[in-house]
Design a binder for these strands. Sequence first.
DNA 1: TCATGTGAACCGGTTCACAGCC
DNA 2: GGCTGTGAACCGGTTCACATGA
Lengths: 227, 227
Amino acid sequence: MQLSTHTQDLRQPSMVISSRMLERLSAYRRLLNQLLVEHRERIYSHELGQLAGATPAQVRRDVMTIGFTGSPARGYDIAGLLRRISELLDPQTESRVALIGVGYLGRAVLDYFSGRNPHYPIVAAFDVAPEKVGRVVHGVRCHHVDEFEHVAREARIDLVIIAVPAPAAQDVASRAVRAGILGILNFAPATLHVPSDVYVEDVDLAATLEKVAFFARSNASRREVTA
Amino acid sequence: MQLSTHTQDLRQPSMVISSRMLERLSAYRRLLNQLLVEHRERIYSHELGQLAGATPAQVRRDVMTIGFTGSPARGYDIAGLLRRISELLDPQTESRVALIGVGYLGRAVLDYFSGRNPHYPIVAAFDVAPEKVGRVVHGVRCHHVDEFEHVAREARIDLVIIAVPAPAAQDVASRAVRAGILGILNFAPATLHVPSDVYVEDVDLAATLEKVAFFARSNASRREVTA
DNA sequence: TCATGTGAACCGGTTCACAGCC
DNA sequence: GGCTGTGAACCGGTTCACATGA
């Protein structure tokens, strides 16, 4: 019999949350927060769905999956649902983040995250350029990449954001893995090869723009055909 | 009987390319390009799969879907496959892009794309800050957002990249739609409501980092359990 | 009446497994 | 033998449709 507290205390034992669903939960949370600020108290699945760009059925399914319950008469309690989602998404302990690569994109990322979400503080930055090493950018000290393992263990880094040129990406990823990090947000257009217990999320800006162009075009030709 | 050239000439009549598959095709292309530079001529599905982080079956299925054929004895011809993928992904006419929001992220995007891919030139930027309007950033002139419709029609903009604060996002998106653009790459953490023939791709950096943290954590606890 | 909760059907995408061929 | 090409099975995620309840 298991009596000690453990990480599942507040979570359904066998709840499986997919990547897609996690994105929706993020969106719901953002919207519910806004609604709460506007002193709105309750909401129906079709309203939240409309706001989040999801179907009512999907909202109900998501809410059900995370083990929250509304009432047919009054919909969902906004504050309660918000609490439940945050309980699920926010880590028990903060996840400490390092940025590798302090170019334009890296600085944008620093700016974007600095002071934004206390659950994911960026506590160190790394680069190879001598003029950047030693500097403090957006409140974060920049170290040389060669010191990564040392500094990362010291600062107890859990996650890294890779914003280096593609040819350097695998190298810094391998360093990060050696330093025991658990997850990577990769902006470099390169496929990272890491052990399967390290989670990698790729954000390829060029490919994303290509995608927009591609589907925008196919929408356009559909428009021509139907016109 | 249809004799005139039209956009389907080089494409399979009823080929359906999903979002996921498009991302893989981008990755294949990147890798094939590299291989070609290294004077490699042929490649097997399991090799390309390994490089791209896909299964051999998936590579074969993708190649089949785009109507390219290899040989069991020698695998795929790299140059030929590359040509076929580019034929599919690259637009017949360039897609002209505008950036809205010239903050850190906007500038990073400008830097990232400036001179990179001639198929998607960023030809104009927009902001509301008086000190930015009129300036030239990374080779792109910055206009006031109020002039969007006028400038966008003049410059024949097809796509916009939105990098403004969330509260301003819907407004600039609506302007863009009114100006007749076809696709939006949206970095603002807001759900954009646009007509269904406008393609929107959201990139939410905060949510993405949250996702990495979430799955990194669940990997970690799995690691503890199996350890 | 109208909304939630949910089993069941559905759908798109992935993987299997094998025929055909060098 | 080992690869490609591909129908068929499979799987996860979405949507349907209806029982239930205020």
